Amino acid sequence: MTLKAQWYRDRLAKKSRKGFCGYPVATVACYGPDDRRATKVAVGVVAYEGADSDPVERWFCETSDARTDPEITEAVVRFIEQHGARSVVAVDRIIGCPHEEGIDYPEGEICPRCPFWSGRDRWSGEFIR
Rank of each mutant, 00 (worst) to 15 (best):
R36T: 13
S64A: 08
D69M: 09
T2H: 09
Y48L: 00
D34H: 02
R9Y: 09
V41P: 08
D121T: 02
W59C: 08
W117M: 05
K4C: 01
D104S: 04
A85Y: 00
F79T: 10
Y105W: 05
T73S: 03
S124K: 03
L12G: 10
A13N: 15
V76H: 02
G44I: 07
W123D: 11
H99I: 01
D10Q: 15
A42M: 13
R78N: 14
D34N: 12
K15A: 15
P55F: 10
P55Q: 14
R58H: 09
V89T: 00
K4T: 04
F60R: 15
M1K: 08
H83E: 08
C21F: 01
D92W: 02
W7G: 09
R11H: 14
A85V: 02
I110V: 03
E49I: 05
V43E: 15
K4D: 03
P55N: 14
G125D: 07
G84W: 06
A5L: 03
A90L: 07
Q6N: 15
F116Y: 15
G119S: 07
G44P: 02
E62I: 03
E107L: 13
A26V: 04
R113T: 06
V89M: 00
C21D: 11
G96S: 03
V76P: 00
S53E: 13
C21G: 07
R120H: 00
A47R: 07
P112M: 04
G22V: 03
V88W: 08
L12Q: 15
